[in-house]
Simulated scan of single mutants.
Amino acid sequence: MELRIFTEPQQGASYDDLLRVARTAEDAGYGAFFRSDHYLRMGSADGLPGPTDPWITFAGLARDTSTIRLGTLMTAATFRHPGPLAISVAQVDQMSGGRVEFGIGAGWYEAEHTAYGLPFPSLGERFERYEEQVAIITGLWETPLGGTFSFEGKHYTLTDSPALPKPAQERVPLLIGGMGAKRTPALAASYATEFNLPFVGIDAAVEQFARVDTACEETGRDPKEIIRSVALVACVGRTDADVARRAAAIGREVDELKQNGLAGTPAEVVDRIGAWRDATGVQRVYLQTLDLADLDHITDIASDVAPQL
């Protein structure tokens, strides 16, 4: 079982804040530092100092960290054209020495599109664009050196692209996720190296992972080739008082977090992760870390929870 740190900087974080968290996670031995791709805060937070872009963030972290892997849950297909996005991600992969993991989704938060002048099509069109972007980005990266890539879809057309630059990795890990019942599992079966479920219960996860397995079998792919992962809010403390303090800092109730996330003492959280593993076969857990100033939280989990897994 691998633990990864997952941040939501649209709630209020600068690059320096994220760098401190990423370096703390790296020093503590976490497998990866992930962040969301949002341009507008959610809930009651004021969002100061304002949004940051993930691929600009990762360009900095590529040079300011050494070993930790870097990725998105999830890059929004509505924010960028696929050709320039493929260039950006490949460049960051080169800058990091091959440490990028690329999560991409259809985009869902309408208010941030309105706030920054981005089109927000219907769900059906967003998913069409999402499917085409995945095909284009992977196609560009997989085109042999010296070859060209062309694509003609409903929403995007590329003609004789030199398909450059190439990532440092032979294959950048591609994360797909979500609860769509048909098209999402089918897309994962065709392209994903990892399937992620954010903030769902165990029963829902069991059902969705089964759909992905079925989609793999229908395409002749071994379902075991796809890593299973979940993202859950973390609130861990050595005492009940520590847990209550950390829950209050993020505006949540302890009982609700124990029900829907990973909250409690280290022993309680280890048991909860064990229940997830036994029921769903998950191999990675993304710990949604909402209080980015509480670096001790990250190190405490690394020292008190990770060794028991």
Rank of each mutant, 00 (worst) to 15 (best):
T159S: 12
E170Y: 02
I176T: 05
L174N: 02
A163R: 02
L175H: 02
V172H: 06
A168F: 13
S190I: 01
T193L: 06
Y156F: 13
A181F: 11
F195E: 08
I202W: 02
N196G: 11
F195R: 04
A168V: 11
S161L: 12
Y191D: 00
G178F: 05
F199L: 14
A168P: 01
Q169I: 13
P167E: 06
S190P: 04
P173M: 09
S190G: 13
L158S: 09
Y191I: 06
A186G: 03
V172T: 08
P165Q: 08
T157D: 09
S161Q: 03
M179V: 15
G178K: 00
G177A: 11
P185A: 02
A181V: 15
P162D: 14
Y191V: 04
G201H: 08
A186D: 11
G201W: 05
A163I: 01
P167Y: 12
A189K: 08
E170S: 15
L187V: 14
I176A: 01
I176K: 03
M179F: 07
K166E: 12
V172L: 14
S190N: 11
D160L: 10
A189M: 05
G201Y: 00
T184H: 05
Y156G: 12
P173W: 09
L175M: 15
Y156Q: 06
L158T: 09
F199I: 15
A192Q: 01
F199K: 09
T159P: 04
L164C: 14
P167R: 03
G178W: 03
I176N: 04
Y191R: 08
R171M: 13
T159D: 15
N196F: 03
Y156S: 03
A188F: 05
P185D: 11
A189T: 10
P173I: 08
Y156I: 02
A188G: 01
A181P: 03
F199Y: 10
F199A: 14
L197R: 02
V200Y: 03
M179I: 14
P162L: 14
A181W: 01
T159F: 15
S161N: 07
H155L: 14
A181G: 05
S190M: 12
